[in-house]
Design a protein around this nucleic acid. Structure first.
Lengths: 297, 297
DNA sequence: TCAGGTTATCTATAAACAAGATAGTAGCGA
DNA sequence: TCGCTACTATCTTGTTTATAGATAACCTGA
């Protein structure tokens, strides 16, 4: 059973004529006859009343209903890839908690305005987890800290963040090693690249990582820092966006530790759905506006 | 885009290998490559990651979802015709009010027990209307009074009914012409063959059809007869089935007027869905039990 | 019965397909 | 780094299938 034959069957049922069906689908009447006949032989049922008025039999009518389901699914699938201008379908994005909170809203708003027919799904998690999701094909693209060395993946430097130390009291210089040792550190769960930076920072101060509490959400973490539970390390922009809600204070970190780049990573562009391609374009536009010195690889 | 290619795509996505997909669908690996490649060219997107693990790209995953919709519709359609033993789908039956009330329940119960997966739809109406429905393909088969002369239709004498005169008082002989003239007659709406019999009966008594009230339902009609509104003519069996609920009385009519045959009419058997074929069989069995002298044409 | 329109059949050409053989490639382990 | 293995891509060949056009058969309505 071929989609071509079913399309002809539907056309015959609708036009009530083999010739008209042939014309509609740009072929000749003899081919319509052949296709219908083949369908009938395949199913062992007469599908079309030929004598007098040409119209579908009960069996034909029943098949037409299924044919319409198949054809509409087919046409929808085709429009997923060949839809002109407007993309449709689904876009699954993986992003770090901080990126989701700070950077994505603007971009998603712009994207949704451009492509209202795309269903957007966001999964948040630490870098390592996101890379895993991408490798498993459970998301279409991710925003992670650092480019993915794995070949056959497309990386685009999306955002540059400045990490700052966040505490509950104003700071003018780095807390003493003693203060750091006795304080707790709050970080995202295992795998978050920011957490590595915390450990790096502590090491640079000659302090071994002490107690590190793990959090799943940004709000919870900042709330706890504000409550004096300890320190954390976050992008400056993220903190500033929330500073009016929490009683928190920041301290700049040394450049070598502070600078952290967020990359947009996705499989090769040849594998992109129009929805993803369009998202990458939206992202590129947004990045160019913010910092013209973008790097693709 | 062919169903065959989509089936291969799904198999590749599920097995994670071209060779395994080929084996599953009883073909060779080179054909799988060709089909997938053709799909990719057609859609302008890479569907399968070939390097390392063979797995679908985001685009491939999206297409697989549509493919599954198409294929399941296809398989369902095939099982509609090729399903062994159990028929499925839909059966649209047209029947007269009296047949529906008196004869169908038994048959439908037997049919439903045999074919539980068939959705049954009943449309009731007078003979002329039912024939119209059948000719238009809006029902799959009908029960009507009299065989359909139109060629290319399959007729089977299903039931023989004895029409009786129904009134609100006990009758031992035909009411007088005078009584008939001053009485109202209750009948189904225009097109009901029983109504023609009423007029025939009145004519045989030398009376012109007087007031005839039209009803849409049997219950309403019998209720009105019981209330003394007038006479009606109905199959004996139908009346007997309802006699305990209404205060009504019957009088046998002359054989020439009384005998009326109900036929099962459907298009040619070649056009039957398994659901309809199975129904015809159930009916034939039921008819043989009741009156072995059945006639098919 | 005839005319007009419609479907079925036939045929030659072109295209598509399936299977097998072979070449190329990535990943793995020594 | 070097094979080894398992996999996909490509090429070839014979066969099947699709297409368009011409023609025959058919039905319907006048």
């Amino acid at each position: 059973m071929q989609l071509k034959s079913l399309r002809l069957l539907v056309a015959v049922a609708e036009t009530g004529s083999f010739g008209a069906a042939a014309k509609r689908l740009h072929t000749v009447q003899s081919n319509v006859t052949t296709h219908i006949k083949k369908l009938e032989e395949e199913l062992g049922v007469q599908l079309i009343h030929r004598a007098g008025r040409v119209r579908p039999t009960s069996a034909g009518l029943a098949l037409v209903e299924y044919a319409e389901r198949m054809l509409s699914a087919h046409d929808e699938a085709v429009s997923l890839f060949k839809g002109q201008e407007k993309a449709c379908g689904r876009l699954r994005i993986g992003a770090m908690e901080t990126t989701t909170a700070l950077r994505l809203p603007t971009i998603l708003a712009a994207y949704h305005a451009a492509q209202p027919d795309v269903d957007i799904q966001i999964k948040t998690g630490p870098t390592a987890e996101l890379v895993e999701l991408l490798l498993n094909g459970q998301v279409d693209c991710v925003f992670v800290a650092g480019r993915l060395e794995h070949g056959r993946y497309h990386s685009l430097k999306a955002f540059s963040e400045q990490l700052v130390l966040v505490g509950s009291t104003p700071m003018t210089k780095m807390p003493s090693s003693q203060a750091l040792l006795t304080s707790a550190f709050l970080a995202f769960r295992q795998g978050c690249s920011y957490r590595q930076r915390i450990e790096l920072m502590l090491a640079s101060q000659g302090v071994n990582a002490g107690r590190i509490f793990e959090f799943g959400s940004l709000d919870a973490m900042l709330g706890c820092v504000a409550a004096g539970m300890g320190y954390t390390v976050l992008p400056r922009g993220t903190v500033e966006a929330h500073q009016h809600r929490f009683g928190i204070h920041t301290l700049a970190l040394p450049t070598s530790i502070a600078n952290i780049d967020t990359y947009f990573v996705a499989p090769e562009p040849e594998t992109w759905t129009p929805a993803l391609a369009s998202f990458a374009e939206t992202l590129r536009d947004a990045v160019v506006v913010n910092e013209p010195q973008l790097t693709a690889s």
